[in-house]
């Protein structure tokens, strides 16, 4: 990890705010972001947009987390579409995706790279 970029990491909450196998929402400079804590995955934590573009409301952090064929996903609590936690891609509709963010755990703090926002690519 390049130290120059470290300065752009923003602390959004602490590990104790997270709920294992579920999501919480945080407010960031980029707007509402959903953070999911899956302790037994290599990434451990994932961050995607909190806003569900299909339902039109900020709810994704409140969906049920699971996997579809091994891909970690969250199911929107509104209309149950699945969004990949790794890519933000909606599995039911290839034209729909949400942004995902770089996120990491550091000394009990959850850090998000605020302007490291990237639009999901389907290949991800």
């Amino acid at each position: 990890m390049n130290t120059e970029h470290d300065s752009q990491w923003q602390v959004v909450c602490s590990r104790s705010d997270l709920v294992p196998e579920a999501g919480v929402a945080v407010w960031t400079q980029a707007g509402p972001v959903a953070i999911f804590y899956l302790p037994d995955t290599p990434e451990q934590i994932f961050a995607i947009e909190h806003y569900d573009p299909v339902g039109g409301a900020s709810v994704l952090a409140r969906g049920i987390v699971g996997d579809v064929q091994g891909e970690p996903v969250v199911a929107s609590p509104l209309y149950k579409q699945h969004f990949s936690l790794r890519s933000g891609q909606c599995l039911e509709d290839e034209r729909v995706s949400v942004s995902c963010f770089e996120v990491r755990l550091d000394k009990g703090q959850v850090q998000l790279r605020a302007h490291g926002r990237k639009k999901a690519s389907r290949a991800a």
């Binding site: 709920v19 294992p20 579920a22 339902g55 039109g56 900020s58 709810v59 409140r62 987390v65 609590p77």
Partner: peptide, 22 residues
Amino acid sequence: EPDHVPLQDTNDTFMANMQKNG
């Protein structure tokens, strides 16, 4: 209970019924 929280639909988790605007 911590073991049960991630299993619930949002309605059960927050003990209320989610409407179309969240």
